[in-house]
Design a protein around this nucleic acid. Structure first.
Lengths: 205, 205
DNA sequence: TATGTTAATGACCCGTGGGTCATCAACTCA
DNA sequence: TGAGTTGATGACCCACGGGTCATTAACATA
């Protein structure tokens, strides 16, 4: 008869549970993730999760907010504080976005689950769109306009859907999620290609 | 007491079931798709599905093969039979790919489910990679080489990962799957932007 | 019309997993 | 140190859905 040892850690629990949750979600997806497995990974009993999150759905919502929150806003700083050519700024922004979105296993996982389960979580989908996608698009738009204003970029680029510029990044994210085993992606090299083709596609001369 | 009317349609069943299956899969995803719903949509009883497909997994495999099969190979014809500038050919290839992949609800659905459930179907994932992705990449690579050989494209483009060129298309696909409700995508206009930026990014002068 | 064959049915079985709650133990404070 | 509070536990409950199979009815054949 071994004694059952319990630990009371009201403060630390939520974060521990979120960490365990995204780990399991990333491995097997939302539908295949069992609450019991998340609990096991967090080193607690299943019931404990329900002390902090009412349902599985709410736990997922917690995961999204926790791991997406810190990203937001950083991009904005870049563009206002930077002095230099628009070209340099664009290149820097793209690399930054790769680091934040493609380079983060957690954020790739969130994106993947929103792709698969998005219809069941419309509020999270629009949250993601509002906080990540449309911010990114706005940023691209702003940078392109700046480049045109400074005479570095062609004027026609203003008629291009800014999402096109972000496109290759999404592909890289998708690739790392599903094809990396069969054919690993060198993100560094890929990102260089992305910057290169965008720069050329956008600049005058 | 209404009579139960049964129809015997051994030949037509598999295709009817596959059609019902992809419809349901596209609406709710693999994990949330119930065999009973697929049966209902096909106008048959649940047990009937199992006369033609051993398991749910196998049914999904059938869906992928059925709706992906016809795509393959068409792209190849394009490049061998076409006489013209490499630039025209690239533009045409991109537009063609949009029509085939982004424009088809069924193929977007398959891609979405492979993203979410890919880990559970490694053989399907590698099938998709082999038959769709790496073909696309090879095609891009070939076209770029041709453009360089004909002196239309810059030589540096050969060092760019061809997947970058396909990237925006993947984004369009993802977008239509999850964000179209909150912010609908004009695929035509988006594709034009894609062609434009790639052409500029790739051509000399 | 009778008989055999087989496509089709749907009630049923049962493993699975989200969610509950009576019980317990860690900690507090008097 | 004893009573009260509350974080933690895990056995249990039960809805759900994949898969089965005895039964039924459509069609062929003679």
């Amino acid at each position: 008869m071994t004694e059952v040892i319990r630990k009371r850690r009201k403060e630390a629990r939520p974060e521990e549970i979120l960490a365990a949750a995204i780990a399991v979600l990333g491995e097997v997806g939302f539908a295949n993730a069992r609450m019991a497995d998340i609990a096991k990974r967090a080193g607690i009993a299943k019931g404990t999760i329900y002390l902090y999150f009412k349902t599985k759905d709410e736990l997922f919502q917690g995961v999204v907010q926790h791991y997406l929150g810190p990203t937001l806003g950083r991009l904005d700083d870049l563009k206002t504080n930077f002095e230099g050519t628009a070209a340099e700024l664009v290149a820097m922004a793209i690399r930054h976005a790769y680091r934040e979105l493609v380079g983060s296993w957690e954020r790739r996982t969130i994106m993947r689950i929103l792709i698969s389960e998005g219809a069941r979580f419309p509020q999270l989908t629009s949250y993601y769109h509002r906080e990540v996608i449309s911010r990114g698009i706005l940023m691209v738009k702003t940078l392109l306009e700046r480049g045109v204003a400074q005479g570095e970029f062609r004027e026609e680029v203003l008629s291009i859907n800014p999402a096109v510029v972000m496109g290759p990044m999404i592909m890289a994210s998708v690739w790392k999620m599903i094809f990396d085993e069969v054919s690993p992606l060198d993100v560094e090299e890929y990102a260089r290609g992305h910057v290169e083709i965008v720069m050329r596609g956008v600049m005058k001369a």
